[in-house]
Design a protein around this nucleic acid. Structure first.
Lengths: 205, 205
DNA sequence: CCTTTACTAGGAATATTAACCTATCATCAA
DNA sequence: TTGATGATAGGTTAATATTCCTAGTAAAGG
């Protein structure tokens, strides 16, 4: 996080409420010159950081949350995390001594299902889905997500059976659902025999 | 947002990284006394607000985001979803016609790693981790999470190797990491040969 | 067009936090 | 048990942000 990110967040917050930075400061009971663009860096080029007290006053004045403000500052929504490949993870500089991610080499990856879309979880019992899913595992399912061939899915038949499978084939005449365990045979259905198919996004470990 | 919320957030952030507030300040290159409980209010009772510059340094030092910190400050708890078992899912009344969850029978389940704690993602390449993880899969790892026997973990050796395993045994003399594929043998290490172990929370599907 | 208000730059004074320092107690390792 | 380190309280100094003020330009309204 850079100081200019905070200033940008303040500008965006002001904009969301139809205000200038000056107007935002005024509404918060601060001096209207407080957030002047010219005052965001000192004459020596040193960045000026708005205080958390000023931020709290501003957020109070426009009825916004700190969490919402932080999303503006970071230009991000929920459901993302730093990401690298296993290969890069072998190199120095990606983890601190305690194993936490550090450094600039991490991408920021959005993760499907972890933002605001509707998801639900199903808990596995028994061993009928091993080795893919063990008893007690929880899978996160996104009913609104696009489903492609090869995706792991939860499907419900017209008869009411709910199962976890792999979508092997889907066309106007047939829906083939392969077993998660390749030792078991695929099952084929007519489209009318399937009530819905939803993509599995995540499995707990 | 009150000033004490920010201090609480800082304390929680410190705790997540196994630090005291003093240790957190120190790690951020600030004076270790900066966040002393005694300095959070002035002698006249006026609240003291940490500067955004100090926050930025702290977040940089522990690799956390401003957004994550804001969630701590506001006590926000993301990362939950409706949950039922696969058995219940066979019954009527849990899904609408399009497969979205409906009805009152769903529990609300919190999901580790999907709220505010620090997590990162590693992307799998190649087929060396099948059948547990396929190429392109992403696993979510929580460096601060408690690790128990039987957990799937990412471990880094003192030599720098990073691997995904199952924690089979851990005591003062030996750390045994079992392969995710039971056809492969376990590996045993002296504790000094392991730099860190972090729990895998989720695998993409 | 004129007046008022808003926005912005810039400087000095004021207020507040961080840095620096000292001291004490607690914890950990040898 | 001893010594080193960490955590905490508390005081002083240095650094930094806000407030207050002035002035110019822009925008809005009559």
């Amino acid at each position: 996080m850079q100081h200019k990110d905070i200033w940008r967040g303040l500008d965006q917050l002001a904009g969301q409420h139809g205000l200038s930075a000056s107007g935002l400061a005024k509404r918060a009971g601060l001096d209207p010159t407080s957030f002047n663009p010219s005052k965001r860096e000192g004459a020596n080029g040193r960045p000026r950081w708005p205080t958390t007290e000023s931020l709290a006053r501003v957020l109070e004045a426009v009825g916004a949350g700190f969490y919402d403000f932080a999303a503006l500052v970071e230009g991000r929504r929920g459901g993302s995390a730093p990401l690298i490949g296993f290969g890069q993870a072998q190199q120095d500089g990606f983890f601190d001594d305690a194993g936490f991610p550090v450094g600039a080499g991490w991408d920021d990856a959005r993760f499907p299902g972890l933002g605001t879309e509707t998801v639900y979880a199903l808990q596995v019992s028994g061993d009928s889905m091993e080795p893919a899913y063990r008893a007690g595992d929880r899978i996160i399912v996104a009913p609104g997500a696009e489903v492609k061939l090869g995706d792991r899915v939860v499907a419900k038949t017209a008869q009411g059976e709910v199962m976890a499978k792999v979508l092997a084939r889907k066309n106007t005449r047939i829906i083939e659902l392969a077993s998660l365990n390749p030792d078991y045979p695929s099952r084929e259905f007519k489209p009318s025999e399937i009530a819905w198919i939803a993509r599995i996004l995540w499995a707990s470990q």
